Simulated scan of single mutants.
Amino acid sequence: MRRAAARCGLRTIALSPWRIAARDDDEARRALAIALAAPVAVFTSPPAVRAAAALLPEALAAPGRIRIAVGAGTRAALARAGVPDALAPARQDSEGLLTLPPLAAARVRGRDVGLVTAPGGRGKIPEALAERGARMRRADVYARVPLAPDPRAIGRLQAARGDLLLPLTSGEALQRILDALPEDAAARLRRARVVAASPRLAALAEAAGFAEVCRADAPQPAALLRAAHAAALNRDARRRPPARRPDKHPR
């Protein structure tokens, strides 16, 4: 996102709620081996793919099994890891993923389904698949280690003038940041224009008190910035006074 924003001439304020820590232990390898042995395995993020590739690269790319990515970024990570035929939904979120034919109730009932992920986030996927009768084989291959917001970033947020843009791809990240910020900084952030990667995230932003929320059609940085640009153009058009119509009978 930082590189994409810089290409558009935008400056960023980094409010990272966590850092990614890949696991490298026997328990993670055992759980991953079971998940990857399932006929179908779902990957919830690019970090999940990278962590799995570091732990068990041969099992990850084993032929004859279906690998499913939650979105295009995760599918690209699978391709780089040796899985060029992974599936991904057109609608790149949990709801879209659950519409894929290999995850239909008739296909997963009574069968193992692997889930390669991290603790927290995307709880809808395992819950929905378990309701369809799947035996979930979960492997948490990385962790999100909480970080306190950088005081320098908080200061930049508090001092920011003009419009702010908040790309939103994680409801958990949004809530962590709002909880961690000082009250005035959180209030300033809530005045940002949110561009959400899914309808669910848009609803979460509205419930969290953000007044201006628009939606992107994909979670990739370019798609988020395109949606933000389109929303800004529409807002400016609404604010522009209507053109004065010329008199029909000038004197």
Rank of each mutant, 00 (worst) to 15 (best):
A227Q: 05
D236R: 15
E212M: 11
A143P: 00
K248Y: 11
G121D: 07
T12Q: 10
G96V: 04
L164Y: 02
P146C: 04
A211T: 05
I20Q: 15
P241L: 02
A196V: 05
R132S: 10
L168H: 03
A77V: 07
A52W: 06
A81M: 07
R137E: 14
R109T: 09
S94K: 09
L78K: 11
A202Y: 05
D247F: 12
P221T: 01
T44Q: 12
P250T: 04
D140R: 02
E127S: 14
L168R: 04
A88I: 07
L100D: 01
A106C: 03
A208P: 04
V116H: 10
A223L: 01
A4W: 06
A41L: 13
L87T: 03
L168M: 06
A51M: 06
L55K: 00
A106G: 10
G73K: 04
G121E: 08
R245Q: 15
A159Q: 04
L178S: 01
P17V: 13
G73L: 01
A106W: 00
G114R: 13
A228L: 03
H249Q: 08
L147A: 12
R65A: 06
K248E: 15
R23Q: 04
R193Q: 14
A61K: 12
L98K: 09
R191D: 07
I154G: 00
P17E: 09
L56W: 00
R239P: 00
A22E: 15
T117C: 15
A222L: 04
E58L: 04
R111P: 01
P167F: 15
I177K: 03
A153V: 01
R161K: 15
S170I: 11
A69K: 00
E58N: 08
E172K: 07
N234G: 13
